[in-house]
């Protein structure tokens, strides 16, 4: 009789407690990135670009060469990194405030140029680190510390669907929205993230994975209730799926 361990956390995932709140799914997204880089055998040629927000500490959990970008500028910094080191695997890891608000110009043009970089976009509909303010992806009616009565469509506009926008840009090779609220979705997210990196390695163009995620603390919910909200409120507005895949188009 021999006991084997089913769970194998990749070595690049640093064995230390995270600073994330209970139920925050950044940890799952970190793990999926770590698994993808490990599966593809590219850990030692990867350069990460961390952004501003809760995930600025990405470098504490992934043992990678990492540069910290100013708020929203990760795609510009990644462009500089990739142009300087075209053989490196380069990715940014950004939240919704960072990517879809202050960094909108940088993400759009990085995608449009078709920079051979991968962007992991964690959308939890709120500014986490600064205390739960309204984000560009905050759902209509969702209460935050800067829209205490709930986001108002007339006053604050509709939440931005980034994957749909990114998919419309010429340089985008692969664009997918995933969630990590169920085992099935986590496995799908894993596949998407791996594929995004594979496209970069193949020089196909810009690759983008939006990960719907929870922020139980700022949603004022228990982790379990927050996770249920992903299916009940987020996915209906932010549908999961592949929004662009040039390989699929090429094959057609």
């Amino acid at each position: 009789m021999q006991e084997i361990r089913v769970t194998n956390y990749p070595e690049v995932l640093v064995d230390r407690p995270t600073h994330y709140c209970p139920g925050c799914q950044h940890g799952i997204a970190h793990r999926l990135v770590a698994e993808a880089l490990t599966d593809l055998g590219v850990v030692d040629k990867t350069i990460a670009v961390s952004s501003i927000g809760c995930s600025v500490f990405l470098y504490n959990y992934l043992n990678l060469d990492t540069v910290e970008a100013p708020h929203g500028r990760a795609p510009a910094v990644a462009t500089g990194v990739k142009r300087a080191r075209p053989d490196a695997v380069v990715f940014t890891y950004q939240g919704d405030g960072d990517l879809a608000s202050i960094g909108m110009a940088e993400i759009m043009h990085c995608a449009n140029r078709g920079e051979r970089v991968t962007v992991i976009f964690v959308n939890n509909t709120v500014y986490g680190m600064t205390g739960g303010q309204m984000a560009p992806t905050t759902l209509v009616g969702q209460k935050t510390t800067t829209c205490p009565g709930g986001r108002c469509l007339e006053r604050e506009g509709a939440p931005i669907r980034m994957s749909e926008i990114i998919a419309s840009l010429g340089g985008t090779a692969y664009c997918e929205r995933v969630a990590v609220n169920t085992v099935k979705n986590v496995l799908g997210a894993k596949k998407a993230i791996r594929k995004a990196f594979q496209y970069q390695l193949d020089g196909k163009g810009f690759s983008f994975v939006e990960v719907l995620s929870t922020c139980p603390t700022n949603w004022r919910m228990t982790p379990v209730a927050a996770n249920e909200r992903v299916a009940s409120e987020m996915i209906p507005y932010f549908p999961l799926g592949t929004f662009k895949d040039i390989a699929a188009t090429e094959g057609a």
Partner: peptide
Amino acid sequence: CAFCAIMCPDFAIHVFKTKEA
């Protein structure tokens, strides 16, 4: 099945199976 570990955001779960040698 390790579903618990797949959903754990904190890498806090290990799952073991025992096989016949």
